[in-house]
């Protein structure tokens, strides 16, 4: 079947099998390798991307469901003048990146949550920030610096 969607600002029309997972569309068809496969079971969040403003696990999401929607992957953050988005800057400044395999997912989750907070005019507490990252596993950092980085985004 054919789907039309926007990915990282660009409109794409693509013929796909109805069983194709979004992560496979992103990584294998569109060759955007920044989205990471940590488990393909919906448990680790490494594959998080943003669909219509919400962070989702792309390994648990059928590609057909992005028809008519807007998808942002890690490659869609930043631009030529500012190659890094604020969330990425904060992750770096706070030492939130070790091996980096969880990082794309952490960044996308934080981006979606911060957009939501800004839209609703709220500043989340540290506990709420922790809660927002609960679905993203990291084996290297012990989360502390990732939480610090996310908090720094909201503090701005």
């Amino acid at each position: 079947m054919i789907i039309t969607f926007k990915i990282n600002g660009e409109i794409k029309t693509q013929e796909i099998k109805s069983s194709l997972l979004l992560i496979d569309l992103i990584r294998d068809v569109l060759r955007l390798k920044g989205t990471k496969p940590g488990c393909l079971e919906g448990e680790c969040g490494a594959c998080s991307v943003i669909v219509n403003g919400a962070a989702i696990n792309s390994c648990m999401y059928l590609a057909i469901n992005v028809d008519g929607k807007e998808v942002t992957t890690i490659e869609g953050l930043g631009n030529n003048e500012n190659p890094l988005h604020q969330v990425q800057e904060k992750m770096l400044e706070n030492g939130a990146v070790q091996c980096g395999f969880c990082t794309s997912g952490m960044v996308m989750t934080t981006k979606a949550y911060s957009d939501k907070c800004i839209a609703e005019g709220i500043t989340p507490t540290r506990e709420e920030v922790k809660k927002s990252l609960e679905g993203n596993l990291c084996r290297c950092t012990g989360y502390a610096k990732i939480i610090d980085a996310a908090e720094a985004v909201y503090k701005k």
């Binding site: 955007l32 390798k33 920044g34 989205t35 992957t73 890690i74 490659e75 953050l77 930043g78 190659p83 890094l84 990425q88 992750m91 770096l92 990146v97 091996c99 980096g100 990082t103 794309s104 960044v107």
Partner: peptide
């Protein structure tokens, strides 16, 4: 770090 945080690594 920039490569790792931008998905380019």
């Amino acid at each position: 770090g920039k490569e790792r945080v931008s998905g380019k690594a």
